[in-house]
Nucleic acid binder design. Structure first.
Lengths: 349, 349
DNA sequence: GTTAGCAATCAAATGATTAGAGTGCTAACA
DNA sequence: TGTTAGCACTCTAATCATTTGATTGCTAAC
C-alpha cells in the first residue's frame, strides 16, 4: 500500500488539526475540513489504511486518531520540502552592539523561548580543537602562578596554579618565554609526553613547576571542550502543555535544564552529527520523540540549528517542546535566528 | 490570653503531626498523641484558643487545623532554643582536596539538595567591596587589549577590550605600570572621576584607550558584585511535595531557578540582612512564607546560612522547600554543612 | 475545669446514569 | 469498483445523587 495523494492530504489534515487542538481527530472532522468533499465513511476507510501504515494511531477504541512519531516525521519532512519558508515574525535581535558574549547568548536564548513559547537552549562556542595563541604567567603571590591562556579566536581562560617552589620575577619571565616558544600554535592533541619532557628538561631545576603549569593548560582546554557553557530559557513554558506537565516528564526536563549535563551531551551530539552529515550542516533539524540525541525524552521534540562564529567555532541553538509542537513556526523562527546570528558574527569579525 | 505550658505542648504536637502527614490534624489525634491524657473535647477548647491567638487555622469547616505562618515561626524558634542540636547525618564533603571552586560549589549544593530532599542553592563568594590587587595588560592582536584583573583573595577576571588605536608593546607596558600605580589597592568606590581624569592626562595621547580600560575595570567589578554566580540543585524535588506542584507555584520556582536573577537578589538580601543584624551573623536563619527576602514565594520557606572564605569574602547556602518542611533536619544539615565549609576554607587558606 | 454526647458541616469517595464522539461493518448506490 | 448512508457497538467524560467519615462547636452533666 502506498501513500497516494489523497492519503497524503488526509494525513496532513489530521496532523495539522491535532497540532492545533491537541484532541484526537475523528473522521467527521476531516470530512469537513480536508477540502476533499468526501464523506466521513470514506475517510474512515482511508484512516484505517493510514493506521495500518503506521502514521496514526488510536489512543483507545472510541477516540479519533493522533499522529505517531512516523506521522510527525512525515509532516516535518514535508514542511522542509515546502521551500517557500515564510519566515515567522521573530524578535529582531539588533545584534549590532558589542556586548559581553555571555549577555548576548542569554538575550538570544531568551527571545528564542519567548518567540516560540517553548523551552530554548543555546551553547556558547567551545574552544575544543582550537589552537593556543599564547599564554602568559604572572605572580600574584609567593608560591602561586597566575596562568592566562589565550586561544585562537581570543577565547581567554585563567587559572591560579600552586607551584612547589618560590620563583622570582625573572625566572617566571623566562619560563613564560620558553613555554610560549613550545606551545604557541599547538592544539590539545599536539601536546604529547615527549614535548612535555622536553620542556621540563629545558627548565632544569624548575621542571616540576613547569609540569604543573602545563598540566593546568591541558586541563583548562579539556575542561572547556567538555564543558562549553549552555544557557537556557523558558523552562516554565513546559508547564503550558498539559501532555507534558505530569510529574515524571516534567521532572526529567527540569533536571535536564538545571543540571545542564544532559544538555551539554546533547549539544555535543548535535555538533558531531552535523559534521558527519557534512552536506547540510547548518540546516534546521528536527528530532522527534526519542530520535537522535534526545534519548529519554520520549514525549518531546527537539529542533536545532548551529550558528557560526569567527574562526569556525560553532555553537548550537535549540528548542525543546512537546511532540505536538508548532513545527512550522519553530523551524522558521530558528532559521531566522540562525541567519541573524551568522550575519552579526560575520560582520562583527 | 497567654501561651501556657499546655497550649505550648498542644501546638507543637499539632505542628509536628502536620509536618509528618501533611493532613490537617483534628482534636482526636492530639488527644491520643500529645501524652497529656485529655479528651478530644478539652483539646477542642484549647485549639479554639490557639486559633484565636493566630497560631493555627482551619482550611474549611469540618477539617482539622493547620499551622499559620505564625505557628511555623513559633515552632522554628522553639527548635532554635533547643540548643542541643543533634546534628543530622549529612554527607561528609571531604573538602580537603583542592579543586576548581566552581566544581566544589556544585558538589556542595548537590549534596545539600540530596541530604534534605529540597531545592538547594549556593552563591559563590563575590568580590564586591574587595580591593584591586593588580592588573595586567597584553596585546593578543592589533587594536585590542587583554585586561587581566586580579582582586585581593586572588579572584581573577579578564576581558578583551577594543581600543581606538594601535599600541606597541612598549606603550602598553608603560600604561600597565601607570595604571597599577594608581589603581592597585583601591576598591570600587575609590575610583572617582578626578582619579580617572588624572590618569588620562598622564597618558597623554593615549587617554582614550586608558579610559576604555578603566571603564572596563569598573564594569567588571560592578558586574561581578551584582552577578556573583549562584548554583542550584534539586529543583526537581519541588515536585515531590503536592502542596506546591500545581502549575503556578511550580512555574514561579522553576523560573527563579532557571533565570537565577531572583536568587541573586535573594542572596544579596540575605547577605546584607545578616550584616545589619550584626551579632548572630552566620547563624542558620529561617524565612517562612513571604518573610524577608522570599517575596512572592508565599507557600515556601527558605533556610539560609552564610559561609566564609579567606579574606572575609562571604557566600550563602540556602534550601527552599514547602512551608511544611522538616525544619529540624534542614536546619541541622545546614549547620553541619556550614561548619564543614568554614573549617575547610580556613585550613586551606 | 473536664468530659460525654450529639447535631451540624463539609470534603471526598462512590456509583449510577447520561451524553457524545467515534469506529467498523454492511448493504445499497453510481 | 469506489463511495456512501445507516446502524450497532464501544468507550470516555461529565453529571448528579448518595454515602462515608472526619471534625467541629455547643450543651449539659460530672
Amino acid at each position: 500500500m502506498e501513500l497516494d495523494e489523497r492519503k497524503n492530504i488526509i494525513l496532513k489534515t489530521i496532523i495539522r488539526n491535532y497540532l492545533d487542538t491537541g484532541e484526537p481527530v475523528g473522521s467527521r472532522t476531516i470530512s469537513k475540513y480536508s477540502g476533499l468533499n468526501l464523506s466521513s465513511a470514506t475517510i474512515r476507510n482511508e484512516m484505517s489504511d493510514l493506521e495500518e501504515l503506521g502514521y496514526i494511531e488510536q489512543p483507545h477504541t472510541s477516540a479519533g486518531r493522533i499522529p505517531t512519531d512516523l506521522g510527525y516525521r512525515f509532516y516535518v519532512d514535508s514542511i522542509q520540502q515546502d521551500s517557500e519558508k515564510k519566515l515567522a515574525a521573530s524578535t529582531n535581535l539588533m545584534l549590532e552592539r558589542v556586548e559581553r558574549l555571555e549577555m548576548l547568548l542569554k538575550r538570544i536564548v531568551k527571545s528564542l523561548a519567548a518567540d516560540t513559547d517553548y523551552a530554548a537552549l543555546i551553547s556558547g562556542p567551545s574552544i575544543g580543537n582550537n589552537k593556543i595563541k599564547y599564554l602568559q604567567l604572572s605572580v600574584p603571590e609567593e608560591g602561586k602562578i597566575l596562568l592566562i591562556l589565550v586561544m585562537e579566536g581570543n577565547v581567554i581562560r585563567n587559572e591560579l596554579v600552586t607551584i612547589p617552589e618560590k620563583l622570582d620575577y625573572e625566572t617566571v619571565r623566562n619560563l613564560d618565554i620558553m613555554l610560549n616558544n613550545h606551545l604557541a600554535g599547538l592544539s590539545l592533541e599536539e601536546i604529547n609526553t615527549s614535548l612535555v619532557t622536553d620542556m621540563m628538561v629545558q627548565s632544569g631545576a624548575h621542571g616540576e613547576s613547569v609540569k604543573v603549569v602545563i598540566d593546568t593548560v591541558v586541563e583548562l582546554i579539556e575542561h572547556d571542550s567538555e564543558n562549553g557553557e549552555v544557557f537556557t530559557s523558558g523552562a516554565k513554558n513546559i508547564f503550558k502543555y498539559p501532555e507534558l506537565s505530569d510529574a515524571v516528564r516534567a521532572t526529567e526536563l527540569i533536571t535536564a535544564f538545571e543540571e545542564k549535563e544532559q544538555l551539554k551531551e546533547l549539544v555535543k551530539e548535535v555538533t558531531t552529527l552535523s559534521v558527519v552529515d557534512g552536506s547540510d550542516t547548518g540546516e534546521v533539524k528536527v528530532y522527534i520523540g526519542g530520535e537522535g540525541p534526545v534519548k529519554n525524552m520520549q514525549n518531546c521534540s527537539l529542533v536545532t540549528a548551529s550558528y557560526e562564529m569567527r574562526d569556525g567555532m560553532k555553537g548550537v541553538i535549540g528548542v525543546i517542546g512537546p511532540k505536538r509542537m508548532d513545527y512550522e513556526k519553530v523551524m522558521s523562527t530558528m532559521q531566522s535566528m540562525k541567519e541573524q546570528m551568522d550575519r552579526a558574527f560575520r560582520d562583527q569579525q
